[in-house]
Amino acid sequence: MAIIKIKRPQLTLADKLYLPAVIKGLWITLGHAIRSMRGKTHGAAQFNSSGLGVTMQYPETKWDDQLPDYYRGVPALVTDEQERERCVSCQLCEFICPPKAITIIPDEIESDDPWAKVEKRPKEFEIDMTRCIYCGMCEEVCPEQAIYLRQDYAMTGLSRAEMVNDKERLYEIGGVRTGLVNKWNELK
């Protein structure tokens, strides 16, 4: 069997005394502190820092224009170019949602509706933002390209009820998304 014997490093007297290492450490932290106070922290400019450290001062400075495309913010429902609500309430997102934030009550589309052949749509679609963990599973599981995580991240409310996004609000956040697969065309 392969037993590898590792030799412990031989410590010099300075190492054993420990004090030089402490002083070195103090020197390093002092260097950081001084740079920080002079507003010259490494990377401060890159992060739009206010000068002290690299921290971005949130409400005053925001990073919205630098958010990557894959940023996972508030989940929302989208409509397509034909103004059709894409969700058919298959409830897969409700099923996959790890914190059970999504509640859907399905509904049948009336026969006089131009999209009657889609047959099904959500009557109620609620996402409880106090529960949502922004994991993006709903977007990933959606077979209809109907739910997307948007770039919004500042969800606030004064009550729990306010933090529940209903269907209307979800479509308002989601807006129109173009270029999606049109699977409910004439030929289907």
């Binding site: 058919v88 309430s89 298959c90 889609v118 099904k120 077979p143 699977k183 289907k188």
Partner: peptide
């Protein structure tokens, strides 16, 4: 067979 499993109750 249509590919409508998302709306089909039998799914």
């Amino acid at each position: 067979h249509p590919l409508d499993c998302p709306i089909c109750d039998q799914a």
